[in-house]
Computed example of a mutant assay.
Amino acid sequence: MEVIVDQDACAGSGQCVLSAPEVFDQRDTDGIVVLLNDNPDPRLHDDVHEAARICPGRAITLIGP
């Protein structure tokens, strides 16, 4: 799985960080998503899929399973 984030689309809600803190973080200044790992371990895939599903800005794109 490859993870791509669109910082321009990010609403700064932090739902991705709550769902997959090993993969996502937020900038301290404005809460915009920061991608920590663009190719997460398979054991994190369910959490990353959940983060993408609940992202209010639809700022997370997943490529692959």
Score class of each variant (00 low, 15 high):
4 I>M: 04
41 D>S: 13
11 A>H: 02
41 D>I: 04
49 H>S: 09
52 A>P: 06
47 D>G: 00
12 G>F: 05
19 S>M: 14
55 C>H: 07
44 L>Q: 11
24 F>S: 04
45 H>R: 14
8 D>P: 00
65 P>I: 03
26 Q>A: 12
20 A>K: 02
65 P>L: 04
55 C>D: 10
63 I>T: 12
4 I>C: 00
55 C>R: 03
38 D>V: 01
43 R>V: 14
28 D>S: 14
27 R>E: 13
36 L>A: 10
53 R>V: 01
9 A>I: 00
24 F>V: 01
51 A>C: 08
29 T>Y: 10
6 D>G: 07
48 V>L: 10
41 D>V: 12
59 A>V: 03
49 H>C: 03
35 L>Q: 03
26 Q>R: 15
23 V>S: 06
11 A>Y: 01
60 I>Q: 04
11 A>I: 08
5 V>I: 15
46 D>E: 15
11 A>W: 10
9 A>K: 15
62 L>F: 09
27 R>Y: 06
38 D>G: 02
62 L>G: 05
20 A>Y: 02
35 L>A: 00
7 Q>R: 15
12 G>R: 05
13 S>T: 11
22 E>L: 13
13 S>F: 14
26 Q>Y: 04
42 P>F: 05
64 G>H: 06
59 A>N: 06
23 V>C: 10
33 V>K: 01
54 I>Q: 14
35 L>G: 05
58 R>T: 11
36 L>P: 02
13 S>H: 13
29 T>M: 03
53 R>P: 00
4 I>D: 06
33 V>N: 02
55 C>A: 11
46 D>V: 11
51 A>F: 11
41 D>E: 15
55 C>P: 07
40 P>A: 04
35 L>V: 07
53 R>S: 13
